[in-house]
Design a protein around this nucleic acid. Structure first.
Length: 294
DNA sequence: GTCCAGGATGGGC
DNA sequence: GCCCATCATGGA
């Protein structure tokens, strides 16, 4: 299966992001080939993804002798488009970034990088909650323990490829069931609460996609455990609102501090002033600035 | 041993 | 509305 890639796409830049953390459990990358289970509802497909000349993405189905049906191929293609933000034309972003004092260098250094998405809403929300107020390395450890405790896996060539735990399953747990994982009791409560909202139908990606940015942000922040940072993180990486802007993010703050050679952290007001030229591209600006340090 | 990490909550004022 | 203690563990 072949996916034609858009302009301004560079797989090396995207692989640079995807391989920055060795302890990632949702995919594996070896020799620039991504192996991952793409799970959508009941469907679970183990695929390998590689890119030729930044022109074509090749998707191969593994561990699956049965014929792959058309609807399944279409779902996979849609998922990959969302994952790599393939339907987005980055030309205006680069035009803006090339004259921006903060973005100029990152935009050149990471040219072709997309805001790598987390198309599954529950996975995106959990990853946001897990990452609150801890370093990224520990966040990945927590995610791995959570996924390997409650997720399914597909084995291929004696390696396991994991599926993120479905919200239906997590909705039935109690915080004590998560005690073995070294996350705070509150985070356990938040994740179970989110799973229950999704299981009851009160929270879904479709509903949020039908809202404008402010409505979606408000309805996310109303949920216990989701504050401004997590809401904007999910709006950025799952719902693909380009104006999503996790301004409280410590990584963003430290990146700006480094780029501007400051001996203190920039204030929120200073970051707001710097971000005025980024209008409608705040999420891309944030993602590129993250890459400066992480 | 110290400091801080891709924050959020609930309380006091 | 703003400020602050608390959560609570690992990584550097």
């Amino acid at each position: 299966m072949i996916i034609t890639l858009p302009a301004n796409f560079d797989m090396n830049a995207n692989l640079g992001y995807l391989t920055r953390e060795k302890n990632e459990c949702m995919y594996e990358i070896e020799s620039d080939i991504i192996t991952k289970v793409i799970a959508i509802g009941e469907m679970q497909s183990l695929v390998q993804i590689s890119v030729i000349d930044n022109q074509q993405m090749v998707v191969q189905f593994l561990n699956d002798s049965r014929p792959i049906e058309k609807w399944e191929r279409e779902k996979i293609v849609t998922y990959i488009h969302e994952w790599f933000d393939l339907d987005n034309d980055l030309t205006p972003f680069y035009e803006m970034a090339n004259s921006d004092p903060l973005l100029q260098i990152p935009a050149q250094k990471f040219y072709g990088l997309r805001v790598i998405g987390i198309p599954d809403l529950f996975e995106a929300l959990c990853w946001g909650v897990l990452g609150q107020q801890i370093n990224l390395a520990f966040a990945h450890t927590l995610k791995r323990q959570f996924v390997e405790s409650f997720g399914d896996s597909i084995e291929w060539k004696s390696k396991k490829y994991w599926v993120f735990p479905p919200y239906e399953r997590i909705a039935q747990l109690e915080p004590t069931d998560l005690a073995a994982i070294k996350m705070t009791v509150k985070k356990s409560e938040y994740i179970i609460g989110i799973a229950r909202l999704m299981a009851s139908g009160e929270l879904s990606k479709d509903q949020l996609m039908n809202m404008n940015f402010k409505e979606a942000e408000r309805s996310l922040i109303k949920i216990r455990g989701i504050g401004p940072w997590t809401a904007n993180y999910v709006l950025m990486r799952c719902l693909r609102f380009q104006t999503a802007f996790p301004i409280d993010d410590v990584g963003l703050i430290n990146s700006i501090k480094t780029l501007r050679n400051m001996n203190r952290k920039p204030t929120k007001e200073e970051i707001l002033a710097l971000s005025i030229p980024w209008k409608n591209w705040e999420s891309y600006a944030t993602f590129y600035l993250w890459r400066v340090l992480y």
